[in-house]
Amino acid sequence: MGNGMIAVVAAIVGVAGTLLAPIFSQRLLGRIQGEQFERQQQAARADWLREQEQAELAERRNCYVATNAAYRRYRIQLMDYLWHLHRGTVDAEARAELAAARDAHNAAFAEAQMVASAAVLTHLDDLAAALGEAYVKIKRLERGAPLADGSLDDIDGELRGFWERWRRNAQSDACRHRRRHTVG
């Protein structure tokens, strides 16, 4: 090959390189920008999921606090009503306070059914049943038709033991939760 031919080939390669360089650069830039966009989308999706988890956790925590307070209040009102019954001082105000506590308890339980885990709902259901049984026993005692295990002392013992049951259940749930989130 002569010098002229080498010069023509070099010129063709040079011109082709000059003409193709912007196309290759643009494709490379497009690929890089696409990868950056995808990473940004993944980061935004991860942020959104994290925010959703935090919002759900806050909602669940608020619900658990309200449910805990409602269960405590209902139990205390049952004990207070039992005390009024024992002293013979049950009046419209005591009945209204018990009814309000019972309604608040039912509302809190209904809300918990929407956000609580199955394990928590099982415990809440058991505790609600125990409070419901205590309520029935108190009302039967008030009417003068107590159940066999519905004496004042029996009911008082159940209501006092109720919170120990609640604490044990809460501790076992907390242990299970820690194990689930610390193991792998």
Rank of each mutant, 00 (worst) to 15 (best):
Y135P: 00
V136A: 06
C63P: 02
E59Q: 15
Y81D: 01
A44D: 14
V136Q: 11
A148K: 13
M1E: 15
L121V: 02
L152M: 11
A128W: 00
A108V: 00
L98T: 00
A116F: 09
A116E: 10
D154K: 02
L131F: 01
A134M: 03
L29I: 11
L49E: 12
A66F: 02
Y74W: 14
A118E: 15
M79G: 06
Q26M: 11
E164N: 08
W166T: 03
E38S: 08
P22E: 06
V13H: 05
R45M: 11
V90N: 01
Y64D: 13
V9A: 07
E158H: 07
A43H: 05
Y64K: 03
I12G: 07
P146T: 02
P22A: 02
G184S: 10
I32V: 12
I138K: 00
I12C: 09
V115W: 02
S151T: 15
V120G: 02
W166S: 03
R50Q: 12
Q171C: 06
T18P: 03
A104H: 02
D126H: 06
R60V: 05
R180E: 08
R75K: 14
D91C: 09
G150M: 03
E111N: 13
A10V: 14
R168E: 15
L28Q: 09
A134F: 01
N3V: 14
I12N: 09
A16Y: 15
Q54I: 08
N106T: 11
Y135N: 08
H84Y: 15
A130T: 05
E133A: 10
R165E: 13
A21N: 10
G150N: 03
V90E: 03
D91R: 10
E53Q: 12
V9R: 07
R27E: 13
F37P: 01
L57E: 13
M5S: 13
Q52E: 12
A55P: 03
M114P: 04
E38F: 08
A107K: 12
M114L: 14
L152S: 03
A10E: 14
Y64N: 10
G4A: 11
R167M: 11
A96W: 15
D125A: 08
M114R: 14
Q54T: 11
R60L: 11
H181K: 07
V9T: 09
G157H: 06
H177M: 14
G144D: 05
C175R: 13
A99C: 09
A96G: 06
D154L: 04
R72S: 04
L152W: 05
R73A: 05
D154Y: 04
L29K: 11
G132L: 03
L20A: 09
S151Q: 12
A10Q: 12
A108Y: 00
M5N: 15
V13N: 06
T182W: 06
S172Y: 10
G34I: 05
L29D: 12
Y74T: 01
P22L: 03
G30Y: 13
Q171V: 10
A118Q: 15
A100M: 15
G30V: 04
A44I: 11
A46D: 08
H105R: 04
E164S: 08
N3A: 10
E133H: 08
Y81P: 00
R179V: 06
